[in-house]
Amino acid sequence: LQLFIKTLTGKTSTVEMEPSDTIENLKAKIQDKEGIPPDQQRLIFAGKQLEDGRTLSDYNIQKESTLHLVL
């Protein structure tokens, strides 16, 4: 599924993920695209901070969801 990652600067990146992927996997993919180390990334979806060990489906993240990346 395609996700949009929006940064505080207003920049939006697109990443392709599976519902079974963990937040950790997602942060690794963001690191590949943006060069931001996972330990500096905080991802927010629906007002919640996402935890590394959980999966996208745990948070009911659907295709074309927008996640907010806070550093």
Score class of each variant (00 low, 15 high):
residue 1 L to K: 04
residue 1 L to A: 04
residue 1 L to F: 13
residue 2 Q to I: 15
residue 2 Q to C: 08
residue 2 Q to N: 11
residue 2 Q to M: 13
residue 2 Q to L: 15
residue 3 L to H: 02
residue 4 F to S: 07
residue 4 F to K: 10
residue 5 I to Y: 08
residue 5 I to C: 03
residue 5 I to T: 01
residue 5 I to W: 03
residue 5 I to P: 00
residue 6 K to G: 03
residue 6 K to C: 11
residue 6 K to W: 07
residue 7 T to L: 15
residue 7 T to G: 11
residue 7 T to P: 05
residue 7 T to Y: 14
residue 7 T to K: 07
residue 7 T to F: 15
residue 8 L to Q: 12
residue 8 L to A: 13
residue 9 T to F: 13
residue 9 T to R: 10
residue 9 T to P: 06
residue 10 G to A: 03
residue 10 G to V: 02
residue 10 G to I: 03
residue 10 G to T: 03
residue 10 G to H: 04
residue 11 K to F: 10
residue 11 K to T: 10
residue 11 K to L: 11
residue 11 K to E: 11
residue 11 K to H: 13
residue 12 T to W: 12
residue 13 S to C: 13
residue 13 S to I: 15
residue 13 S to F: 15
residue 13 S to K: 07
residue 13 S to P: 02
residue 13 S to Y: 15
residue 14 T to N: 07
residue 14 T to Q: 10
residue 14 T to W: 10
residue 14 T to M: 14
residue 14 T to R: 11
residue 14 T to D: 04
residue 14 T to V: 14
residue 15 V to D: 01
residue 15 V to L: 11
residue 15 V to A: 03
residue 17 M to I: 11
residue 17 M to N: 02
residue 17 M to C: 11
residue 17 M to L: 07
residue 18 E to Q: 13
residue 18 E to K: 13
residue 19 P to W: 11
residue 19 P to I: 09
residue 19 P to Q: 08
residue 19 P to H: 07
residue 20 S to H: 13
residue 20 S to Y: 12
residue 20 S to M: 10
residue 22 T to L: 10
residue 22 T to A: 04
residue 22 T to K: 08
residue 23 I to N: 00
residue 24 E to G: 13
residue 24 E to N: 08
residue 24 E to S: 12
residue 24 E to F: 14
residue 25 N to D: 13
residue 25 N to A: 14
residue 26 L to C: 00
residue 26 L to E: 01
residue 26 L to Q: 00
residue 26 L to K: 00
residue 27 K to S: 01
residue 27 K to A: 01
residue 28 A to I: 13
residue 28 A to Y: 11
residue 30 I to N: 00
residue 30 I to A: 01
residue 30 I to T: 01
residue 30 I to V: 04
residue 30 I to W: 02
residue 31 Q to T: 09
residue 32 D to W: 11
residue 32 D to K: 13
residue 32 D to E: 14
residue 33 K to L: 15
residue 33 K to S: 12
residue 33 K to Q: 13
residue 33 K to C: 06
residue 34 E to T: 15
residue 34 E to A: 10
residue 34 E to I: 15
residue 34 E to H: 14
residue 34 E to L: 15
residue 35 G to W: 03
residue 36 I to H: 09
residue 36 I to A: 04
residue 36 I to D: 02
residue 36 I to P: 04
residue 37 P to C: 05
residue 37 P to G: 05
residue 37 P to A: 08
residue 38 P to L: 12
residue 38 P to W: 10
residue 38 P to K: 15
residue 38 P to C: 07
residue 38 P to A: 15
residue 39 D to A: 12
residue 39 D to I: 09
residue 40 Q to Y: 10
residue 41 Q to F: 15
residue 41 Q to W: 07
residue 42 R to L: 14
residue 43 L to M: 03
residue 43 L to R: 00
residue 43 L to I: 13
residue 44 I to A: 04
residue 45 F to W: 09
residue 45 F to G: 02
residue 46 A to I: 06
residue 47 G to D: 06
residue 47 G to I: 02
residue 47 G to T: 04
residue 48 K to M: 13
residue 48 K to D: 06
residue 49 Q to Y: 13
residue 49 Q to S: 09
residue 51 E to R: 07
residue 51 E to A: 07
residue 52 D to A: 07
residue 52 D to Q: 05
residue 52 D to T: 06
residue 53 G to D: 10
residue 53 G to H: 14
residue 53 G to T: 09
residue 54 R to G: 06
residue 55 T to P: 06
residue 55 T to Y: 06
residue 55 T to G: 03
residue 55 T to H: 06
residue 56 L to H: 00
residue 56 L to A: 03
residue 57 S to T: 08
residue 58 D to A: 05
residue 58 D to Y: 15
residue 58 D to T: 04
residue 58 D to E: 11
residue 59 Y to P: 01
residue 59 Y to D: 01
residue 59 Y to R: 00
residue 60 N to K: 08
residue 60 N to H: 09
residue 60 N to V: 04
residue 61 I to E: 02
residue 61 I to Y: 00
residue 62 Q to E: 11
residue 62 Q to R: 10
residue 62 Q to G: 13
residue 63 K to P: 15
residue 64 E to P: 05
residue 64 E to W: 15
residue 64 E to N: 15
residue 65 S to A: 12
residue 65 S to L: 04
residue 65 S to K: 04
residue 65 S to C: 03
residue 67 L to K: 01
residue 67 L to V: 13
residue 67 L to D: 01
residue 68 H to R: 07
residue 68 H to Y: 15
residue 68 H to N: 08
residue 68 H to V: 14
residue 69 L to V: 06
residue 69 L to H: 01
residue 69 L to E: 00
residue 69 L to M: 07
residue 70 V to P: 01
residue 71 L to K: 07
residue 71 L to V: 13
residue 71 L to N: 07
